[in-house]
Amino acid sequence: MISEPEKWSNLEEIAEHLGVSKDTVRNWIKKGAIPYRKVGKQYKFKISEVDAWVNSGKSAEIE
């Protein structure tokens, strides 16, 4: 059985998923904290990678 590849999420979707503002996500991007990819001028995220980042406790280490 072949599973569908995970879709990429945009900045607005990931902010909603995490329950934070888009500015908070932008600050994490600037600090290189949150896992993301840049596609052109847009930031893209895999929810599974972001969830793993949160579950690892690294999100709590951001100042």
Rank of each mutant, 00 (worst) to 15 (best):
M1K: 14
I2K: 13
I2V: 11
I2N: 11
S3W: 00
E4V: 02
E6F: 06
K7L: 13
K7N: 12
K7I: 06
W8R: 10
W8N: 08
S9Y: 13
E13V: 02
I14C: 04
I14P: 01
E16N: 09
E16K: 12
E16D: 05
H17S: 12
H17V: 12
H17Y: 12
V20Y: 02
V20T: 04
T24F: 10
T24I: 07
V25N: 01
V25M: 03
I29K: 04
K30I: 04
K30C: 01
K31L: 15
G32C: 09
A33T: 08
Y36R: 14
Y36W: 13
Y36F: 15
Y36Q: 12
Y36G: 05
Y36A: 15
R37C: 07
R37W: 07
G40N: 08
K41M: 07
Q42Y: 02
Y43T: 03
K44E: 11
K44I: 11
F45P: 03
K46W: 12
K46H: 15
K46L: 15
S48A: 12
S48I: 00
S48H: 04
E49Q: 14
E49V: 04
V50H: 05
V50D: 04
V50Y: 07
D51Q: 08
A52H: 01
N55I: 05
S56K: 10
S56L: 06
G57Y: 02
G57F: 01
E61S: 12
